[in-house]
Design a protein around this nucleic acid. Structure first.
Lengths: 237, 237
DNA sequence: AAATTAAATCATGAATCAATCACAAAATTC
DNA sequence: GAATTTTGTGATTGATTCATGATTTAATTT
């Protein structure tokens, strides 16, 4: 049981409810959360979940959108409309990416969304991120990329796995460009043009160096910046 | 109706306008704000909003950046440039990360922003945070920052570690700006615009000097004013 | 496997930007 | 309106960041 990964959070152990009809998936989630020092309780249907909820309030709920008996959205809605449960953070599991758009448009918001198939690592990272936000609400709205990367645009701050990375202005600009269209390959020419539209006489090698420095400062997230030989660079999740 | 969550704020019930074209989202926001004891009015387009604004001034505006008829930025700008509305706090809703740049780059832009998809709980928390900030800055009471800094805006007095610091008017204004959105980076242009909106021909170097003097007079608290190379200054706690 | 090409890395000089200073110009105070 | 305080300017200094060309490493082609 690895408790240390949980060290950035408050000391008391957090309890997480999992409402998911497929036992395999539920257990996969539970095992990984436990490994990170969380307590979990799994429920295969909404009734069992509601029953337990009366006895014990979880710190977070992981909720499958597609339940056999009840719609996950209904569960979310009913929790949100009940003042004693409305403060429980919810992470939704959805099957398809385009379902998210529906959810967004719908009248209830979960705290985060994860699409199936998901990596357990990713889910755990999101759980931690949501709980961290709970604790520190005066912190800015950080845009999260690929689990470990967070950017606070207002503060010009970048965090990798919760730790601050000190980027220069051009490095941050470069990162923004690469993130603008994830997976899209940008040529060195395009990158230089974005970094300084006026200056035309800058060599391509300069980009390499910026990429190198950026990768270095981003640590593990630096690996996500890929080179496409003969073409340019891209950010791949 | 849970009124207690609102207890930290001033007693009179706060009215919040929501300018958002998608009714589902507008209602989602409204429901959750009402649950926290706020009064809300929703508008699906800018015309309706402006019409009501003439009759009634809200305590805060939640503004979607992407409106069908008008650009949300335009609404923000027009409110800011109108002295009778310029003090209304604005929270912006954005869909994409790169839209955030626009908000931040805008002279005296929004007070906060939330990216879609957002959780209603988070938005409510942001609303409360912004309102608390407004109250603080208009309070007779002293505002405490980072343990060592105390500011009495009514008396125009600043104390560092209990000792009074003699700031000039512009220095106090500058400090107030930096503290308004703690951690947010202000460009020299934004700072100059705030210090004297009319005077346009003032050099950037002037800001440096004000910052220097302010840092000096704030003693140990001066270290909290950070420069972001190539961007501007911020107050970091 | 050798040759070829491109990317990563490195050290260094150039350029940029912030901090500071001394002084001039305004604005306040007396 | 003289004196004093505050604000703005331009120059100088110092630090950081950026750009470059050479060199090493890695990937691709023949």
């Amino acid at each position: 049981m690895n408790q240390s990964q949980n060290s950035s959070l408050d000391l008391p152990i957090k309890t997480i409810f999992i409402l998911e009809d497929e036992p395999d998936i539920a257990e996969l989630i539970a095992i990984n959360l436990k490994k990170s020092g969380f307590k979990t309780k799994e429920f295969t249907n909404a009734d069992l979940f509601y029953k337990q909820l009366k006895k014990e309030k979880p710190d977070l709920l992981i909720l499958d959108l597609m339940l056999p008996d009840t719609d996950g959205l209904e569960v979310c809605k009913s929790l949100r409309s009940n003042s004693s449960y409305s403060s429980i953070p919810i992470i939704m599991l959805t099957a398809k990416a385009d379902e998210i758009d529906k959810i967004i448009g719908l009248e209830l918001g979960a705290d985060d969304y994860v699409t199936k198939p998901f990596s357990p690592r990713e889910l755990v990272a999101r759980v931690k991120a949501v709980l961290r936000r709970e604790i520190d609400l005066n912190n800015q709205d950080r845009v999260r990329v690929a689990d470990i990367l967070e950017i606070d645009f207002a503060k010009f701050e970048v965090y990798v796995e919760g730790k601050k990375a000190e980027l220069t202005n051009t490095e941050l600009k470069l990162l923004k460009l690469l993130l603008h269209k994830k997976g899209w390959v940008y040529s060195r020419g395009q990158i230089l043009d974005y970094l300084d539209p006026d200056d035309k006489g800058v060599l391509d090698r300069t980009v390499d160096v910026h990429i190198k420095n950026l990768r270095e400062k981003l640590g593990p997230a630096g690996k996500l910046i890929k080179n496409i030989r003969g073409v340019g660079y891209k950010f791949e999740v």
